[in-house]
């Protein structure tokens, strides 16, 4: 029991870090599902591309093992370039792989998504090989940096992941709740035709949704690189599945639900790894999924208000 209590804060920190990444991925899944009712199974690979874009920026700005500019700016640039790159990639995927199939049977875009997923993985494998690459996080954030709370240590890298995720979530929440684009996104998610009848350009809203969702996945990729350092062409597979699980657990299509589902999943996984055994780390996600869906088939926050006629 004492050992458990002693470990608890550390596991919470681990869970929040992992959860932040899952939540960021889950958001893109959920937002796209909201407006298109389709599962974008290439989303995990967009996250992977984000991690590699971040890696590329890092290598470019730390050519000889010494940063060319202040490390903070390098981190900011890595995030911004990866978000922009992934946002554009998401828009391109929608344009070429999904839009032509918009009125096809539901299976068609799903298969197209798997095709895009394989394409992105293979493209990276062919151009950069299948080797692991390592983020040189230690050159950006001193390995010793962090905050001490009694016996518990919050390393700077993890604090950074959590803080950046929270900032991104606040910005997203503001965008969706308060701006015209956000209202249009919600309206399209509720009733596409009715939204069009209000003058909403539905295609533009769908493009914006892909951009934002993919940009968040890009940020998640860079944050993963910063905190776990290792990136490779297949990293999007498991992460994508977990992001998808988190989205479903929270109630797919629901934005706060995706955030909640991500953190819940990260926390459970970290507890399972810390207190039971690391062997089960990837199984836990699906155990959580099954339990939540048994109790609440629509996910935690997925309850829809019935439309009265």
């Amino acid at each position: 029991m004492d050992a458990f209590l002693a470990q608890l804060p550390q596991q919470i920190i681990n869970g929040l870090t992992l959860g932040a990444v899952y939540a960021l991925i889950a958001l893109g899944y959920s937002m796209v599902y909201g407006v298109l009712q389709m599962l974008n199974f290439a989303h995990g690979d967009v996250y992977m591309i984000g991690a590699f874009i971040g890696y590329g920026v890092m290598v470019a700005l730390i050519p000889e093992g010494a940063p060319l500019i202040t490390p903070v700016f390098i981190i900011i640039l890595m995030l911004l370039v990866a978000m922009l790159g992934c946002g554009l990639l998401g828009v391109a995927i929608e344009q070429f792989a999904y839009r032509p199939l918009r009125n096809s049977p539901r299976l068609a875009p799903l298969i197209s998504a798997l095709g895009v997923s394989f394409f992105l993985q293979n493209a990276v494998q062919l151009t950069l090989t299948a080797e692991f690459r390592n983020y040189q996080t230690e050159l950006l954030i001193p390995p010793g940096a962090g905050f001490d709370f009694g016996d518990t240590r919050l390393p700077m890298t993890r604090a950074l992941v959590i803080v950046i995720t929270i900032i991104l979530m606040i910005v997203l929440q503001y965008l969706v709740r308060r701006t015209k684009l956000g209202k249009a996104m919600r309206a399209v998610a509720i009733d596409r035709e009715a939204a069009a009848m209000m003058g909403v350009d539905v295609d533009r809203v769908i493009i914006a949704t892909f951009f934002i969702g993919s940009a968040l996945a890009g940020a998640a990729g860079v944050l993963t690189g910063i905190v776990f350092t290792r990136v490779w062409h297949f990293m999007g597979f498991t992460a994508g599945l977990k992001g998808f699980t988190a989205a479903v657990v929270g109630g797919i299509g629901n934005i706060p639900g995706a955030m909640l589902g991500g953190f819940l999943l990260g926390m459970t996984e970290s507890f399972a790894v810390g207190f039971i055994s690391p062997t089960y780390r990837d199984v836990i996600a699906f155990v959580v999924l099954v339990i939540v869906l048994l109790v609440r088939p629509r996910g935690l926050l997925g309850a829809r208000i019935p439309q009265k006629v």
């Binding site: 209202k183 309206a187 009715a194 009848m197 209000m198 003058g199 909403v200």
Partner: peptide, 29 residues
């Protein structure tokens, strides 16, 4: 719509999970 059409659709098609105010704002989109 921009040129001046507006519609009360069949079955009303209210945005159920948006507030009344947001529904009205959609009319002025």
């Amino acid at each position: 719509i921009e040129r001046g059409m507006a519609v009360v659709p069949e079955n009303r098609r209210i945005f159920g999970s948006m507030t009344v105010e947001e529904n009205l704002e959609m009319g002025a989109y």
